[in-house]
């Protein structure tokens, strides 16, 4: 589905990613973990084409899209949904306007759009909030509205940047239940970034560990706690002693 070949990213003199090679097959569910500021968000933004790689190639469905212009990328992005770390809900639109935006931009008529927005809002448990402003929603509701917007156009790949950051444990479980149900039904590929390893492994099948802009480990989610890499073992267990630099 999506492949990164030896990708490096430099921005304003800082190296954010270095030599990242990664292939995500169609239908896979990949988790991205790692300490703060390791380059996890940059990694998913490169996948979405939002940050152009300084070196290396980005290949989506066998097509090399590295260096494509915004206009040329538009049809590629139409097949990708994204949930942003800061929700990124448009503050000039209400909840229904936000969720329906990707479809409205593709010229879907208002009478066809309404039912789809309602169906999506019901799926994420936000029925009844369609005319609220984003600022009136709680953190968990904003995340769910963002998920509804990311998935309304039935994308083949959904990127989740911190789907549960700042949420309480119960809401976190609900969000992962929602993601599981969504992807079981659609079969879409998923890439999820999270610092919450315990929650993430209930959703993803494979995990990559990003450390200082590099992929330090790649392996199945189920055996993460017994990973051969001491970095990963320390990160997952939360131990203070180990090779991780604070």
């Amino acid at each position: 589905m999506i492949e990164l070949r030896d990708v490096g990213v430099e921005l304003g003199g800082a190296t954010l990613l270095r030599g990242v090679s990664l292939a995500v097959p169609a239908g896979a569910r990949l988790g991205v973990i790692g300490p703060a500021a390791a380059g996890k968000s940059v990694l998913v933004k490169v996948m979405a084409g939002l940050i152009p790689p300084t070196t290396g190639r980005l290949i989506i469905d066998g097509t090399d899209v590295t260096g494509w212009s915004e206009e040329k990328l538009a049809p590629v992005r139409a097949r990708i949904g994204m949930l942003f770390q800061n929700y990124a809900l448009y503050d000039f639109l209400d909840v229904a306007g936000n969720v329906g935006f990707p479809l409205a931009q593709r010229g879907l008529a208002a009478d066809a759009l309404g039912p789809r927005v309602l169906e999506r809002l019901r799926a994420v448990g936000l029925a009844g909030s369609e005319f609220k402003q984003p600022s009136q929603l709680s953190g968990g509701m904003k995340k769910r509205a963002g998920i509804a917007r990311a998935t309304i156009a039935a994308p083949e790949l959904v990127l989740y940047d911190e789907p549960t950051a700042g949420l309480d444990p119960v809401t976190t479980s609900k969000v992962y239940d929602l993601l599981r149900a969504d992807h079981d039904a659609s079969g879409a590929t998923a890439v999820a970034v999270s610092s919450d390893v315990a929650g993430l492994v209930t959703f993803v099948t494979d995990v990559v560990f990003v450390y200082r802009g590099q992929l330090a480990y790649q392996g199945p989610a189920a055996t993460l706690a017994d990973a051969p890499d001491p970095l990963v073992r320390q990160f997952v267990s939360g131990a203070l002693d180990g090779p991780l630099e604070a």
Partner: peptide
């Protein structure tokens, strides 16, 4: 403020410049 809250990236993801 739209830039720092990633709303501009969200627009780009919907194919809007």
């Amino acid at each position: 403020s739209m830039k720092v809250t990633e709303q501009l990236d969200a627009l780009r993801m919907s194919g809007v410049l």
